[in-house]
Each structure stands twice: as structure tokens, then as C-alpha cells.
Nucleic acid binder design. Structure first.
Length: 273
DNA sequence: AGTGGCTCCTGAGCGC
DNA sequence: TGCGCTCAGGAGCCAC
């Protein structure tokens, strides 16, 4: 499931392949995936437009076109945006195809949760899903005290707080569990109970796990692929996610699996306090 | 402001 | 082989 490192990897591979290319046409095979502006036609709005820039906010990918329109992509669970240099047949999960002046860009999504939404570029940061996002964890201005201040306002479990995109943008179930393991903090701990020393550990763990995730070109636990169709490799480094009932790689005790904040959460009751 | 439940979806994995 | 069940989950929404 694309979280921050995966979306960043898609952004980089897609930019490498499609920056400056023109969209000759778009074909929509499953209309709910392609959200247009008001009642304007999606394909008409992107047709004959040049892909000008790429950006990312949290788990959202922003693709700027030269007519003042931005495509905001959220992949949710199984969304993929893949560039093919040659003509590529569509399959049952292909929802949108962008025909470029060189190659094709296919949006597919098995579970149909993801969306490509068109917005006027000037208003992109105002749309509610982007406007409410918390800070980017890898921005230079994001310091541990920023994290501390934002956590201080929460009264939930630390796991719920990390998944809350308004607190910090880009973490999902995988990197939240991994960051908590590295910080040695139990996911069910109330946010208010965290000491400053633990928030510093957590801050460092979040930055570390996301940076390593990006360097590994993402985690391909199951479905994730970058825009070249390649898998990432961070799944090899996972300490807890998807390892419930298995031995902790640090201490050998059995990893616990529990629903916290409605999400399957894996942790080590020995290494995390 | 918090939690829990529901919704959107399909495929994998399991028991029988 | 195949049926039916459960599970996976990001985010928006609603009720409490």
C-alpha cells in the first residue's frame, strides 16, 4: 500500500519517464476513478496538455499540467500508475489510460479505492484532503519539537496519532509500526504518556524508517510497484509489519498482533515499552 | 475530541 | 475443484 516512500518512488520514476511529455488523449474505463472539475469532461481537460511538474504531499501525488490544472492522485491500497514506452493492452483492473506523445501511462487499481482528481492548480492546496494534512516528516523544518507539540494535542494511542494524517503526513500502517518498534514504544501507549526522550526517539525513528524506505524504493509487501513496474525492497528490512506470531529479529520473543485504532498492529512486548 | 462501525472493493488464504 | 467465509486496509462519514 503506497505510503510516503512508495509515493515518492512513484513520483521519481514517473517524472523520469513522463516529464515534458504531452497527453494526446485519455480513456476512462471505470469512471469513478477519474474525478473531474464540476461537470467538465475529464479527458477533455487533460487532452493536449503537457506534464509540467511533479510534487508529493503525504501520500498524495500531484501532477501539474500546463493549463493550470493539477491531477491529484491517491493510490489508497492497490492503486498503480505505470509508464509503458510501448503500446500496452489494458486488463480488467485498468481504469484510466493516458496516451502520451511517447508511450502510455496506465492507472490501475484492484480494489478501486484510489482516485485521480483534477483541480485548478491555484486551488490545489485548498482542497480539503490536502489542506488538513500535517507537516512533511522529511522537511528540514520538521523538528522533534514540532512532533512533540502536535502529539501533545492528541489524547489517543500513539499508533492512532501516527496514522492521523493531520498530525503528520505520509505514515501508514507499515511505517507507523516500524517506527514504533525502532523507538521502543508500545503502539497502545497513550500519546500523553510519552516522555520527551521517547518523542525524540520516535522522531528519529520516523525520519530514519522513511528515508530508508525511499532509498529501498519502497516496500512491496504485496501489490506495490513504482512507475517502471518494479518492486521496492524495503520489505526485506521490516522488523514487525506482517510478522505477527513470528520471532522478533532483535530478541527472539514472539511478536504480538493486536487491533489498535482499527488497524492490525504488530509489536514486540519485550523490545517495546 | 475520542472511539467504533460502516462503506468502498477484490483477491488471497483457509477449512471443509 | 469449488464453495463460503474471513481478512487486508486509507479515509470519509456517522453515531455516540
Amino acid at each position: 500500500m503506497p505510503e510516503l516512500p512508495e509515493v515518492e518512488s512513484i513520483k521519481l520514476t514517473l517524472a523520469k519517464n513522463t516529464l515534458g511529455k504531452k497527453i494526446l488523449d485519455a480513456e476512462i474505463f471505470w469512471p469513478p476513478a477519474a474525478v473531474s472539475i464540476a461537470d467538465l469532461d475529464f479527458a477533455e481537460l487533460v487532452k493536449d496538455r503537457v506534464i509540467e511538474n511533479f510534487d508529493r504531499r503525504g501520500k498524495y501525488l500531484l501532477i501539474g499540467l500546463n493549463n493550470g490544472i493539477t491531477m491529484i492522485v491517491h493510490f489508497r491500497m492497490t492503486g498503480r500508475l505505470i509508464y509503458y514506452p510501448e503500446k500496452q493492452p489494458v486488463d480488467k483492473h485498468t481504469h484510466v489510460v493516458f496516451y502520451l506523445d511517447e508511450g502510455e501511462m496506465h492507472y490501475s487499481d484492484i480494489r478501486k479505492f484510489g482516485r485521480i482528481q483534477l483541480v485548478p492548480t491555484q486551488k490545489a492546496s485548498d482542497i480539503s484532503s490536502l489542506a488538513k494534512l500535517g507537516p512533511e516528516p522529511l522537511d528540514e523544518c520538521f523538528a522533534f519539537d514540532t512532533l512533540g507539540q502536535r502529539l501533545a494535542k492528541k489524547k489517543s494511542s500513539i499508533k492512532a496519532a501516527l496514522l492521523d494524517q493531520a498530525v503528520i503526513a505520509g505514515l501508514g500502517n507499515i511505517y507507523a509500526d516500524e517506527a514504533l518498534f525502532r523507538a521502543g514504544i508500545l503502539p497502545g501507549r497513550n500519546t500523553q504518556s510519552l516522555k520527551v526522550s521517547e518523542i525524540i526517539l520516535l522522531y528519529n525513528s520516523i525520519c530514519e524508517v522513511l528515508t530508508e524506505g525511499i532509498n529501498a524504493r519502497g516496500t512491496s509487501f504485496r501489490d506495490y510497484r513504482d512507475a517502471d513496474g518494479n518492486r521496492g525492497s524495503f520489505q526485506e528490512n521490516l522488523m514487525v509489519y506482517g510478522r505477527g506470531g513470528m520471532e522478533c529479529k532483535e530478541c527472539g520473543s514472539l511478536l504480538q498482533r493486536e487491533k489498535i485504532a482499527g488497524r492490525t498492529t504488530v509489536y514486540c512486548s519485550q523490545c517495546q515499552k
